[in-house]
Amino acid sequence: MAIKLELDTALRDLGTISPEGYYIGVHIRVAAPLMTFNTYPQPWIDHYTQQAFALRDPTTAWGFSCIGATRWSAMDIPDPFGILTQAADFGLKYGVTISAGEITSRTIGSVARSESEFTDDEIARIEAIVNRLHVITEPPEDLTKAQTQALQLIAAGDRHAAAAAKLGISESALKARLTSARRRLMARTTAEAIQRAKDYRLL
């Protein structure tokens, strides 16, 4: 619960600095982030998705080639599709991109607003928040045997009562194990916990 509170606080702080929204992909591995947080305007999200900009985005290219922080206006990455120009048309005129972590588990985040460039102090604050997000969302290295068994049985299709019977425990004890696994994996649902455990190669 403490991790979730810290995560929520970090995202709330990020939101106060970036009124036009932010996108954070944490621990990107094999081109896919383990988690994403996106508060950009829905019209921009729809346009970005429809145009398949994800693999052509200069902010993403910068994030994989550099560590640290940069204003969008200072990036020297080519933007042949005019993605940043189009973003400005949706109100995302001034932005900053942050990159943190090893290349094998990179966190890349961008924030935007329409009024003015971000100041150096604001960029330092944003960078600190993104770096913190990278740390607190670090995948666990393992689960307890009890957590693993509970997730495996539910993943195999057992209902709570059947899974509990197989483990020789009460249904409430099984639910407690699933709850602890969800917390450990920072998942909202058991299905999400199972998927994350698989992604982390813990199941």
Rank of each mutant, 00 (worst) to 15 (best):
I154L: 15
A87E: 07
M75L: 13
W62T: 06
Q42K: 05
G21V: 04
R71H: 14
A10Q: 02
L84K: 15
H27N: 12
Q50M: 01
T49W: 05
A162Q: 11
K166W: 01
G109H: 02
H27P: 05
T104H: 04
S116G: 02
R188A: 09
S172E: 14
A156V: 04
R106P: 07
R56K: 07
L143H: 03
A61L: 12
A87I: 02
H134F: 07
A87F: 00
G68N: 14
A128G: 10
T97A: 09
A197V: 09
D199A: 15
T70W: 02
I108Q: 03
L151T: 01
Y94Q: 01
E171Q: 15
A124M: 06
K145F: 13
E192D: 11
L92Y: 00
I194S: 05
A164M: 12
V130C: 07
S180Q: 08
D120C: 01
T16H: 08
T39L: 00
A31R: 09
E6V: 05
L167F: 14
D46G: 01
T60V: 12
A128R: 15
L7V: 05
V30M: 08
E122S: 07
I136M: 01
N38T: 12
K198E: 15
A181P: 02
F64Y: 09
Q152D: 09
R188F: 11
M75C: 05
S105P: 00
T107M: 02
I129N: 08
K166Q: 14
A88M: 08
A187P: 07
L167P: 11
A88E: 10
D79C: 10
Q149R: 14
G15L: 06
S110W: 13
R12P: 03
L185C: 12
E192K: 10
G63L: 02
E141Y: 03
D89N: 09
I194G: 01
S114I: 03
M1E: 13
A161Y: 08
T49S: 02
I3E: 15
T16L: 11
D89W: 03
E127M: 07
A150P: 06
A128Y: 07
K198N: 12
E141T: 13
T179I: 05
T107V: 07
F118A: 04
A161S: 15
T60W: 01
R132V: 01
I3Y: 11
F81P: 00
T36Y: 10
A100F: 04
L92R: 02
E117R: 11
H47Y: 13
Y200R: 08
V26W: 00
A191P: 05
G157M: 11
D142M: 10
N38E: 09
D8R: 04
V96E: 06
T119G: 12
L34M: 12
L5R: 14
L202A: 12
H27F: 08
P33F: 00
T179R: 04
P58I: 12
L34K: 12
T16V: 13
A197K: 08
Q195R: 13
D8N: 13
E171A: 15
P140W: 01
K93I: 03
I67R: 15
Q50T: 05
A191E: 12
R125L: 04
T107S: 06
S110K: 09
Y94F: 14
D76L: 12
D8T: 11
T107Y: 06
I108A: 02
D46H: 11
M1W: 11
D79S: 10
L153V: 08
Q147G: 10
V30T: 05
I169S: 15
A128Q: 14
G63Y: 09
A155N: 10
T179K: 07
A87K: 06
E6C: 04
A187V: 02
